[in-house]
Design a protein around this nucleic acid. Structure first.
Lengths: 135, 135
DNA sequence: AATGCTATCAGTAACCATTATCAATACAAT
DNA sequence: ATTGTATTGATAATGGTTACTGATAGCATT
């Protein structure tokens, strides 16, 4: 029995959404917190985490769990792939269409019920490619 | 200037490697800690983390950064894909050959220097499939 | 055997992203 | 206005991981 979830588009929630939609750097919760504070200086970090969770559950945005330790957020809720710089952590969209039939490859050869897949490319961003003198 | 790394195959290191090779559950550092303690009761959790890092850097094992928050370890250092249960976190090898040319898809259409990719399937394991009555 | 060098150890503290808690507040429906 | 619930800001707690520290163990050279 799921309890009713009456969600209100509060100023905090709306501001977080607007701020996220203005960037394509796939920011972390803390980066979003710093950006939002320029418009709502008294907002709490907990509020940012809470609303990022709500917004991604509601399908407005997408929570990314890529390599590394931190979670990032994407204003675009549609399925697409990403590419991450192994040196500085920068994340961009991967300019490649998603494989919609990839799950079929596992049909009949796994005991799992397949739901989806996550594909992430790893590499070096332009800046880190340039400065890639071995340490 | 990289400092010399004279690595010794200590008892702790060897035991961790042996214990990991006896399982296919892709255990976390803490799970490995508990398993190793049955043979080395006085080993420290820090030692486990340190040696898992050394062993993966040396190519003996593989560190997995899948979805979710914790890191897991795989006795098989060769590139292969995994499938993770969204409900209980169980991880198995995905019975599908890796796409070796996938990076070529991005050649010329990204500003990144592509190094590799990570593909992970998500689904429900048999046990969680059976018990999947909606909450 | 004694010495010196260095890797590794166990134990513990620190770190950091994230979650949980809670009293106070804002909003919506009556 | 009043009641009920969602949300907030502030802060504490959590949990996985990493860093620090002084002690110990292995190895090469005397």
């Amino acid at each position: 029995m799921k309890k009713t979830q009456n969600r209100r588009m509060t100023l905090q929630r709306k501001t977080i959404l607007e701020v996220l939609r203005q960037t394509n750097i796939h920011p972390s919760a803390d980066e979003i917190y710093m950006m939002v504070r320029e418009r709502l200086p008294r907002i709490s970090l907990g509020t940012v985490y809470r609303n990022l969770e709500v917004l991604s559950e509601s399908g407005f945005i997408q929570k990314l769990e890529l390599g590394g330790t931190i979670k990032r957020f994407d204003w675009n809720p549609k399925k697409h792939y990403h590419i991450r710089c192994l040196r500085c952590g920068r994340v961009d969209d991967a300019p490649i269409a998603p494989f919609n039939r990839l799950e079929n490859e596992l049909y009949g050869v796994t005991v799992y019920t397949i739901i989806g897949h996550r594909l992430e490319f790893e590499g070096l961003c332009p800046s880190c490619t340039k400065n890639n003198h071995p340490s």
